[in-house]
Nucleic acid binder design. Sequence first.
DNA 1: TGACAAATGCAAGTCATTTGCATTAAGATA
DNA 2: TATCTTAATGCAAATGACTTGCATTTGTCA
Lengths: 139, 139
Amino acid sequence: MKCSQHTNEISATLKDNGLKVTPGRLGLLDIFKHNKKPLAVKEIAKLYKSIGKIDLVTLYRNVESLAEMGIIKKLRISDKEIHYEIPHSHHHHLVCTSCGKIADLENCEVRLPKTKIPGFSKIKEHSLEFFGLCNTCDK
Amino acid sequence: MKCSQHTNEISATLKDNGLKVTPGRLGLLDIFKHNKKPLAVKEIAKLYKSIGKIDLVTLYRNVESLAEMGIIKKLRISDKEIHYEIPHSHHHHLVCTSCGKIADLENCEVRLPKTKIPGFSKIKEHSLEFFGLCNTCDK
DNA sequence: TGACAAATGCAAGTCATTTGCATTAAGATA
DNA sequence: TATCTTAATGCAAATGACTTGCATTTGTCA
């Protein structure tokens, strides 16, 4: 079964990083698995209600620890709140600066530089975001 | 004189956008002109002390209105606060996820896509940021 | 199974950013 | 230049995302 296989994989990753496998974390990952778009913690909390109960604080802590181990990615695309998403196919985002709507931008042909930057030893990830107005707000 | 010429230019831009030319705004732009790196509002306030007095709230409001008219660029590179910078030569940033240190990344060879995105009419700007650990934090 | 550290929930705190409102000052007009 | 209109400013207070402290619960592993 693909699903439990995935869960086992996740459990293994959690353990590898010294994190315990808890219902709270599995539920969180389940939400990301079924919502492949950037989610703010408040949105996650709303989605969480259908699968169980969890404290906002725990959500903040779990989301942060999962981001640290690279299972989910932290996105700084909003002025207000941090978003997280599960990395699927390489993509970027388009953000409406008026209403905050976020669209995925697939098949981006960006070439990233392999430049060595003095003063920085480890580059873990990058983020490319586009900002503008969606059709609704541009009126 | 290059300096007053620049100020006149700025004044014109302010007026064109229906904004009044106030000492507060000119001082703010002066700071950006002399500090070509991302600045958080708190840092701006500190720099402002040497040229005059201004309320933090006014700073927030001015920085926002200048960003809206494209005189300065809003950067979402920190988890904690918004940064602004005056656009100089096209560049991106490298951010240390541990201490928050920011480095400019010049001569970036990124090719941006000319893709048309459904649902979005106007794309105003983009931002490409790299996240990692600086030499100091990577120990 | 029992010990132990990590995970959780609750209450309270922190801090960047925003809002309301009365006052001041730019810029247009007479 | 005096006046008028409206945006800009400063202050106090509010908002809201996120964090922290601490007591309790629960995975994990010997």
